[in-house]
């Protein structure tokens, strides 16, 4: 990825920055506090397991590593989608967008499977404070990924309506920012929740 953005085609703002992009960065700043609250709740409760299973009983590191890797790679395809549209190749952009959405969907599928396994092993939302905070934190991350997938599909639809040329690539860039953010949240969750042992 390089810095080779064409100069903004809408420079008529006080700062020369694009409104939508500025709004997205502000929103992401806000999202930091959103996920910060959930992660703090989890950290507070990670040992409050009651009679239910503990994290050491449940977590399957190789499995979660693979789904983390899938999400990480979806960031790469998102970057490729953006550089395609900036180079004027809409067909390639649509392919990369669909690839990103597919990788996101794979991640969600993995999460659904993981949740099902945990429930079978005896951890539900109401088993313990640990269970509540785990499911709600990762569930809200999953909801963010789902919204991201919807936005990717929306971009693909827009593109087939004839929008999103090389002069009009902002929506792709802004959705890309959101998608990468959801990815870095998962980087934090994977490390703090899965890898660092509790006890």
């Amino acid at each position: 990825m390089s810095a080779a953005h064409p100069p903004a085609e809408h420079p008529h703002t006080s700062t020369g920055l694009d409104n939508a992009k500025l709004a997205m960065w502000a929103f992401l700043g806000s999202e930091c506090l959103f996920f910060g609250s959930f992660i703090s709740t989890y950290l507070l409760y990670r040992n409050v397991t009651g009679d239910g299973p503990t994290s050491a009983d449940l977590y399957d590191i190789p499995y979660t590593s693979i789904s983390s890797f899938v999400l990480l790679m979806s960031s790469l395809t998102m970057v490729l989608a953006l550089s395609s549209v900036q180079n004027g190749d809409r067909r390639a952009m649509r392919i990369w967008l669909m690839a990103t959405a597919f990788l996101g969907l794979t991640f969600i599928g993995g999460q659904v499977f993981e949740f099902t396994t945990f429930v079978e092993e005896g951890l539900t939302l109401s088993t313990s404070a640990f269970g509540s905070s785990f499911f709600v934190l990762t569930g809200f991350h999953g909801a963010h990924v789902t919204i991201g997938i919807l936005m990717l599909l929306g971009l693909t639809v827009m593109s087939s309506f004839g929008r999103l040329g090389p002069d009009d690539s902002r929506p792709v860039e802004v959705v890309g920012l959101y998608w990468h953010f959801v990815d870095i949240v998962w980087i934090v969750i994977f490390t703090v929740i899965y890898l660092i042992p509790s006890g």
Partner: peptide, 18 residues
């Protein structure tokens, strides 16, 4: 507050234990 309210809602409606 959004997170706190979600947690309250999960406690009240879905039997979570926040």
């Amino acid at each position: 507050i959004g997170v706190a309210l979600w947690e309250l809602m999960f406690d009240r409606l879905f039997g979570a234990n926040f």
